[in-house]
Design a protein around this nucleic acid. Structure first.
Lengths: 82, 82
DNA sequence: GTGTGACTTATAGTCCGTC
DNA sequence: TGACGGACTATAAGTCACA
């Protein structure tokens, strides 16, 4: 788990969030509002630029109406991926 | 997802981590070493006192040799649970 | 081997904008 | 509607001494 690998995983998470948000017809702004977060922040999360905390992971999964573990379904901690 | 509920979920995560760590025969200290984190920090995580970030979640899942989503298997963002 | 409080530094996260 | 920036405040990261 080097730094590059971590960024890759963060970007995968961001992409997952973006896809679910779009699928639910949210703009970044209305979605940020639903999460109780800032619009510039969720934009950064979707671009994989933000190492978000556990709390915000839960808030986002709640707003998307998915289980938190589903958001990480694509994510692996191993370089090789699974 | 009020504040109390968030703490409950954090504590569940901590308990999950603690159980997996023990099952692997790690002390907090040797486990912290495997994660590249401080002993007191992982102790705080296990007690649900630390709102850990995505990065540390990945480090911990890697050290435990489980998928990140498995660590969240017990976690729900909804008050009612699932 | 673990819990805890205090502490400093890094960064999470907000708010104001512009393009 | 979303990317991006600067300046700010809140809090996570990371470490310590001591119980």
């Amino acid at each position: 788990m080097d730094d590059h690998e971590f960024i890759t995983q963060l970007q995968k998470l961001g992409t997952t969030i973006r896809e679910l948000r779009s699928a639910r017809g949210f703009s970044q702004e209305s979605f940020a509002d639903a999460c109780g977060l800032d619009r510039t922040y969720v934009g950064g999360v979707e671009r994989g630029e933000r190492n978000l905390g556990f709390k915000n992971l839960l808030r986002i999964s709640e707003a998307l109406d998915v289980e938190p573990s589903e958001l990480l379904a694509d994510i692996s901690a191993k370089s090789g991926g699974k």
